[in-house]
């Protein structure tokens, strides 16, 4: 285990990752992650506007994990009826003056096509189109299988400096691992 952690640390460093969490993600943890990043960025004299962008993107990505992760744990201390907590991974890297936020979680394999379609649609939109799409979705009732307002990914796409990157790794017929990467360039 000792060796493995050292290797993990080296891998993170190699990729410029200065923050990494993998495990159950609660709302309280999201608050801590947000504050930790703000403090770190403040130390680096990041601009207020990029701090706000990174904060807001990480909240959307983390809450998407809470809403949609197929991997859940139940707190050991809690009773049978206690709510379960969603499991996922969030990393933040800094490279060439950009902040790179990557998150990953299990999703149902049957949802892969629909999610892919949604991301591709968003990726194909320009700034104004995204704004109109965001506003029209905000006026509509969210989709049945949406747990927030269905606006998270569109909101993220409006804030990033580079198009969203994503990946689906098929695990088996029922679950796949979904990863999404967002980039915020400092000084924008």
């Amino acid at each position: 285990m000792t060796d493995c952690i050292f290797e993990l640390k080296n891998d993170l460093n190699k990729n410029g990752i200065f923050f990494c969490f993998s495990g159950p993600i609660s709302q309280d943890l999201i608050v801590e992650i947000g504050d930790t990043l703000k403090n770190k960025m403040r130390l680096e004299d990041a601009s207020k506007s990029s701090m706000r962008l990174v904060f807001s993107i990480i909240i959307e990505q983390a809450q998407n994990i809470i809403y949609y992760s197929e991997e859940k744990v139940r707190p050991w201390s809690a009773g049978v009826n206690a709510g379960s907590i969603s499991v996922g991974i969030i990393t933040v890297a800094k490279k060439d003056n950009s902040y790179i936020i990557t998150s990953g979680n299990m999703i149902k394999t049957e949802h892969v096509d629909k999610l892919k379609e949604k991301i591709e649609k968003i990726k194909g939109m320009g700034k104004d189109e995204l704004k109109q799409y965001y506003k029209s979705q905000r006026k509509k009732d969210p989709d049945e299988d949406s747990k927030g307002a269905g606006l998270g990914l569109i909101d993220i796409a409006r804030k990033v400096s580079k198009p969203l990157e994503y990946n689906f790794s098929s695990i088996d017929e029922t679950v796949s691992f979904f990863t999404v990467t967002t980039v915020v360039a400092e000084g924008l």
Partner: peptide
Amino acid sequence: IYFNSSSSKALM
């Protein structure tokens, strides 16, 4: 000072 996307929907 900050709100997430689902709060934006609630505000609308």
